[in-house]
Design a protein around this nucleic acid. Sequence first.
DNA 1: GCCAACGTTGGC
DNA 2: GCCAACGTTGGC
Length: 140
Amino acid sequence: MAVNYWLVKSEPSTYSWNQFEIEKETVWDGIRNFAARNHLRAMKKGDLCFFYHSNEGLCIVGIAKVAKESFQDPTSEDKNWVAVGLVPYKKLKTPLTLQDIREDQRLASMVLLKNSRLSVQPVTAKEAAIIADLGGVKLA
DNA sequence: GCCAACGTTGGC
DNA sequence: GCCAACGTTGGC
């Protein structure tokens, strides 16, 4: 079964990659956007999520792995909102900045550039391979 | 801190 | 069901 790739965003002042590495796992909750929610629901155990720092840093810093598929968001009473469990997978040797992404023709159609406000987005296998390559890590 | 872009809400 | 108003996000 093929692995799917995603991109999740977090403001480092709220939750940074460093904190994630220290905690070794996290519940990706608080998503209140239908499109993002649908992506969370589609995540399968073992899928990989690029971890992007928004507002500060503006770069992809690492890759997380889906450890727990979607369940009701513990921060909401409404069972329509879901969260997933993530664990750190790999930290990029070279963080990939938004500018780097913009400048690479092969990444021009990334959702990050098209719809910068979507907090959980799909990434194609091709894009994932390019990001990993530029970041100096192997996906597998 | 500002502002543009987008999603959501609510009046009609 | 449309669309204006509003709130939020995120880059600069």
